[in-house]
Amino acid sequence: MKIVDLIAWFEEWANPAWQESWDNCGWQIEPGVLQEEARVLICLTPTLAVMQEAIAHQKAGIPVNLIFAHHPLIFSPPKSLRSGNPIAEMARLAFIHNIGIYSAHTNFDQVQDGTADVLAQILELQQVSPIVPTQPGLGYGRVGLLKSSFALKELLATIQSRLAPPALIISPTADLEQKLDKIAVLGGSGASFISAVVKTGAQAYLTSDCKFHQFQESRDRDLILIDAGHYATERPACDRLVQKFRTVNLDWVQLSQQDEDFRLFVQ
């Protein structure tokens, strides 16, 4: 499948028109690869490490020509491109090595098998619906019922084993023996959705990037807040994207091994 056809197929599923006004989904850099057979490296964040990984594959005989990322490379127009600037360096390498960079961010967050939906599947939630619907069948986050009542400590153990976060932050007054039935999830920075989660009746909310006073707010509203980190809550959807891309018989598609969490937890 050519890159132009792969992107058209993807955009029928996760239309860039659904992105938020502040977002920058779609082509970040397109160096003239649209008519080439797609050989795709999928990542959470397009970094120089991922670009070097793609170049290493080229040198090994695999002509990778597309980095498909969840996070945009460019959120706002840079005022200049200068040597030593990471975006400038990514652009330089992209054109030298003929590697496109495409991002699917808030449009991918909303869809079936997107970031939130994959988290709901990992926790085996049932009767799932969006926390905040945006249009029929789409929306941000997911809320659903556990297959059977879990104690909070069992839910935390499940999150640890299936998402492998470097650490979990939870509401300090949470009762680890409390039985849970209804859970909300949202990959990435989801603290702004706390009020919407409370309205769903969820007892616990798995997300990331929560601040001190957001834990206070959740405690005061009887919601158990679970912060598993940005990387751990969004990386699984990238793996799912690899699986979906394989269904369209690409010549080559692989999950990046150089994606970075950007945080180191010191024991």
Rank of each mutant, 00 (worst) to 15 (best):
N98P: 01
V64P: 04
N15H: 15
I29K: 02
A91D: 04
D113A: 09
T115I: 15
F75G: 07
L66G: 03
G114T: 09
T45E: 14
E12P: 01
I55S: 07
I101L: 05
N85V: 13
I29E: 03
A88Q: 03
S83W: 14
F108G: 04
F68V: 04
I96M: 02
E11S: 08
I101V: 07
N24T: 12
Q35W: 00
S83D: 07
L66E: 00
I29L: 15
I29F: 13
P46M: 04
H71N: 11
W18N: 14
P77R: 10
D113M: 13
I96S: 02
Q112G: 04
L81W: 08
I87P: 08
A91E: 04
N65T: 14
V40N: 03
L73G: 13
S80T: 13
Q28L: 12
M90Q: 14
I62N: 12
A104W: 01
A88K: 00
R82M: 06
P16R: 06
I99Y: 03
P31A: 00
V33H: 00
S103K: 02
V111I: 14
Q28H: 13
A54V: 13
I96W: 01
R92L: 08
L66P: 02
G100Q: 00
I99E: 03
A94D: 03
G32Y: 01
Y102F: 06
H70T: 10
H71Q: 12
Q58H: 12
I99W: 02
N15R: 10
A116G: 14
N15I: 11
A91P: 01
M51C: 12
A116W: 02
E53S: 11
Y102C: 01
I87A: 14
R39D: 11
T115N: 12
E37N: 14
L34A: 09
S83K: 10
N85D: 15
A60T: 10
W18M: 15
M51R: 05
I62K: 05
E36Y: 00
F108C: 05
